[in-house]
């Protein structure tokens, strides 16, 4: 039995019908409290603005002070997608490596085919003497990776591979910790395979080659997210790239490239690929004309994606 969308929807409906205690919402109290807040808001508008800035800055500080450092990110340079760590050796069953980067989290994942194909997620953590270990988990020593300390992170101290959802963390350049998170592992010796994959991971920033070139992207546009699914999101035999840009005055652009035809307008096909542009505040037809598709052979892909 597998969990599909219908199962999940039905399960959630049933869960929402769980016997519940009486609701504690007091609408009159809510109104009174909100009115007091409205009065304070009016009286302290200027102070409130300053405080709001403070809260915002504090929020940024929290984000920057978080434990996880990014494994890939967007870039406003020639290539909108850069990786800060990369897989090296991977089992033959792996079909490709996907990058999903932007404001909502950065992910690098390698996967095998099929619904239950092996998933391998790469992540990075800040420099520290010891590996990061979440509450309720234990760090069990693993064989060194490239001569550096390594640990299995597990909920069960008697099971390094954590019931098949394995986390391997090992120290890399600069004292940071790399993480390999693997599941649906079908290998005969999953621990040895994960250690070998970890040994092949390289640390360092490098642009990810992409299958298009854009000549003269408006300078006011900044890339906000890049999703490069290899293989495709739901299809093992293809791939899809989506790049999201934002500009002043609410301008936004989404560029999608795939070997498959996609819904959207305007679109164009060339070199065995299809590209669609969705734009607000920018002429999509003009932008489409500026795009050169480089074909399905990734040896022809480029890191000079955006040219003046």
């Amino acid at each position: 039995m597998t969990l599909d969308a219908d199962d999940l929807a039905a399960g959630m409906r049933e869960l929402a019908r769980t016997d519940a205690p009486p609701m504690r919402l007091d609408v009159a109290a809510v109104r009174a409290k909100a009115r007091r807040r409205l009065r304070r808001r009016t009286a302290a508008k200027v102070v409130g603005g300053i405080l709001a800035c403070g809260v915002l800055l504090a929020g940024v500080a929290v984000v920057n002070g978080g434990d996880e450092v990014t494994v890939a990110s967007v870039s406003q340079g020639d290539d909108p997608l850069v990786a800060h760590a990369a897989f090296g050796w991977l089992p033959e069953s792996v079909l490709g490596v996907s990058h999903v980067v932007g404001a909502h989290g950065d992910q690098v994942m390698a996967r095998s085919g099929g619904e239950w194909g092996m998933r391998l997620w790469l992540a990075m953590h800040e420099a520290a003497d010891d590996p990061p270990v979440e509450d309720g988990r234990t760090a069990l020593p693993a064989p060194p990776v490239n001569g550096r300390r390594a640990y299995w992170i597990t909920k069960d101290a008697g099971d390094p591979l954590n019931g098949g959802e394995a986390f391997l963390r090992w120290q890399v350049t600069g004292g940071r910790w790399a993480e390999l998170h693997g599941y649906y592992l079908k290998e005969a010796d999953p621990a040895a395979v994960l250690l070998r994959i970890a040994a092949g991971v390289t640390i360092g920033t490098r642009p990810v080659p992409l299958p298009l070139r854009i000549d003269g992207l408006p300078e006011s546009l900044d890339v906000t997210e890049v999703h490069f699914w290899r293989p495709g999101f739901t299809d093992d035999t293809t791939w899809e790239l989506a790049m999201f840009y934002a500009g002043p005055g609410g301008a936004s652009v989404t560029i999608q490239v795939s070997p498959l035809k996609m819904p959207g307008n305007p679109c164009r096909s060339a070199a065995g690929l299809h590209v669609c542009v969705d734009a607000k505040g920018v002429d999509p037809d003009d932008l489409l004309r500026r795009i050169t598709l480089l074909g399905a052979d990734e040896r022809r892909w480029t890191t000079q994606v955006v040219t003046p």
Partner: peptide, 9 residues
Amino acid sequence: CSQGNVKSQ
């Protein structure tokens, strides 16, 4: 957030 992000999440 983007539609792609919804899909991936």
